[in-house]
Design a protein around this nucleic acid. Structure first.
Length: 203
DNA sequence: TCACTGATCGTCT
DNA sequence: GACGATCAGTGAG
């Protein structure tokens, strides 16, 4: 799709499903937009994971803390945290005020500003740019300064409606966790080359 | 294509 | 003081 033809329509909070699993599926195909000083970057979400309130794998399982507070807010807020001391991971809060749940964005497909993404990922090209939760935050310039912000409000980081429907949504167990490992809470666009993870999970 | 490993640090126990 | 919702490099099959 030619960039000049891409119309980005801001997502309103009322567009977002309250239920975490429904939100994780809804977000497949939707767009993350970041307006940087150097220009706009935008990418379609093609892989997500749901983290529920009664979920031992979720950061919210043991209750609210300073770090995970955004997950307890209303749906549509960003929760960004440092993983393995190295990478920032981007989540979108779900459910209602007081319920700790959200959706991890695991992979995106670049739509706008691919050149800017490449500058932020030296030596990486093609699917290596954004095919993983730590990669995409680097490419899109998402960091701790965004944790807690409202993605449905005016700001530099926001969500836009899917420019076209997902080709088909696949389901699998989640990746990289050690608790509640059997729940089918990972969702991805079938056949999309930017989807991360072992091939056997992506059918 | 898969399995394994080191790097690295904020958060919570 | 231990533990990760990861990535990139290496080596084997």
């Amino acid at each position: 799709m030619a960039p000049t033809l891409l119309k980005l329509v801001r997502i309103k909070r009322t567009d977002l499903p309250t239920d975490t699993v429904a939100l994780a599926r809804f977000l497949i195909g939707a767009v993350v937009v970041h307006d940087l000083p150097e220009g706009r970057v935008a990418a379609r979400m093609v892989e997500t994971e749901a983290y529920l309130a009664d979920d031992a794998a979720s950061h919210t399982f043991r209750g609210e803390t300073r770090r995970n507070r955004p997950m307890f807010g209303r749906r549509g807020h960003a929760y960004v945290y440092l993983n393995y001391g190295v990478f920032w991971l981007f989540n979108i809060s779900a459910e209602t005020e007081g319920v700790g749940a959200g959706v991890l964005v695991r992979a995106v497909e670049p739509l706008l500003g691919t050149d800017l993404m490449q500058q932020r990922r030296p030596g990486r090209t093609g699917t290596e740019l954004t095919s993983g939760p730590g990669k995409l935050t680097l490419a899109l310039g998402i960091g701790p300064q965004h944790s807690g912000i409202d993605l449905c409000a005016r700001g530099d980081l926001w969500l836009a409606r899917a420019p076209h429907a997902a080709a088909g949504i696949g389901t699998s167990v989640r990746i990289g966790i050690t608790k509640d490992i059997d729940r089918p809470l990972r969702f991805f666009e079938r056949g999309n080359p930017y989807v991360s993870g072992p091939r056997k999970l992506n059918v």
